[in-house]
């Protein structure tokens, strides 16, 4: 009797254990959209395993052609790509390609193409990745989505990668590409970043006037995030002023931007240096005037 009971005892326990999680699951059920959002929340919190569980869970209960399913696949791919440790770039690439295959013209396909390129941008043991495959991968995004934010971002990342090469020939090529981008993308929110790269090319090529012009354009086009206390233009003012002062001898422009820096960012570390530079320019001009007036 007793032994029968003992043999039968595990059955209800097992039944309970099997049923209970199911009940709990049912009780706590959330919509796929909410679970997708929870997945990204977990991703941002560094809980990559939980994020994967959420993304896979959404994928399992949604129709393959639904936007949520696509978003879940994209989330899963991004997690496999960026999780540390236990990242799996190959698996990630397969999932991104699934997104692309399922909806080749969807916005997520554009971001997936960009992600495929970014996988190639990852350093190998801290060293820079091979340039040519990376440039080609960016080109895929640019060719397929030339006016999508992902395509525009790819172009800038591609040109920045190419600028790591020290040659002036490369800088000239990059400058041409950027000029074309600025001409064909008059409304792009990436124009400030593009002008920043133009200024860098001009620095490499010694085209100081164009460099100054590009730096000023980058400042004028810069988007402002009013909620970010760290986003200040002190560095931008400083760079414009120093290009004008030391590369062109354009002291009027230099003075204008040093003064902007002093007025708008009085607590900035550069203020003292800016005050000194204003005095140095005055001194140089005074000396030159004296020399000119001395026969």
């Amino acid at each position: 009797m007793m032994s029968r009971f003992l043999r039968a005892f595990p059955l209800p326990v097992i039944a309970f254990l099997v049923c209970f999680p199911g009940c709990a699951e049912q009780k706590n059920s959330v919509s796929p959209e909410e679970r997708l959002a929870a997945g990204w929340q977990n991703f941002r919190g560094g809980e990559f395993s939980l994020a994967l569980r959420d993304f896979k869970g959404v994928g399992a209960v949604t129709a393959i052609d639904s936007p949520v399913h696509l978003a879940a696949l994209y989330g899963e791919a991004t997690t496999w790509y960026l999780r540390r440790p236990d990242e799996d770039p190959a698996r990630s690439a397969t999932l991104y390609r699934q997104v692309i295959q399922l909806a080749p013209t969807n916005s997520l396909a554009a971001w997936s193409w960009l992600a495929l390129a970014r996988i190639k941008a990852q350093p190998v043991e801290g060293n820079a990745p091979e340039l040519e495959p990376l440039v080609l991968a960016y080109q895929e995004v640019i060719d397929r989505f030339p006016f999508h934010p992902a395509g525009e971002e790819a172009l800038l990342l591609q040109q920045a990668a190419r600028l790591e090469d020290p040659g002036t020939a490369r800088a000239r090529e990059v400058l041409e590409v950027l000029d074309a981008f600025l001409e064909t993308h008059p409304e792009s929110p990436w124009r400030s970043a593009a002008y920043g790269l133009v200024a860098h090319c001009c620095r490499m090529l010694g085209l100081e006037e164009r460099r100054l012009e590009a730096a000023i354009q980058a400042w004028k086009m810069a988007e402002v995030d009013p909620t970010n206390p760290f986003q200040d233009l002190a560095v931008t003012y400083w760079q414009i002023a120093t290009i004008a002062e030391f590369e062109l001898g354009d002291f009027e422009t230099a003075r204008e931007y040093y003064r902007r820096l002093i007025d708008e960012y009085p607590a900035e570390q550069r203020v003292f240096v800016a005050i000194q530079e204003l005095a140095r320019m005055d001194e140089l001009e005074a000396r030159l005037r004296t020399e000119a007036s001395t026969p």
């Binding site: 030391f246 001898g249 140089l284």
Partner: peptide, 8 residues
């Protein structure tokens, strides 16, 4: 640069 300043 000094020459440019002088010229200006």
């Amino acid at each position: 640069v000094i020459a440019a300043v002088k010229a200006r």
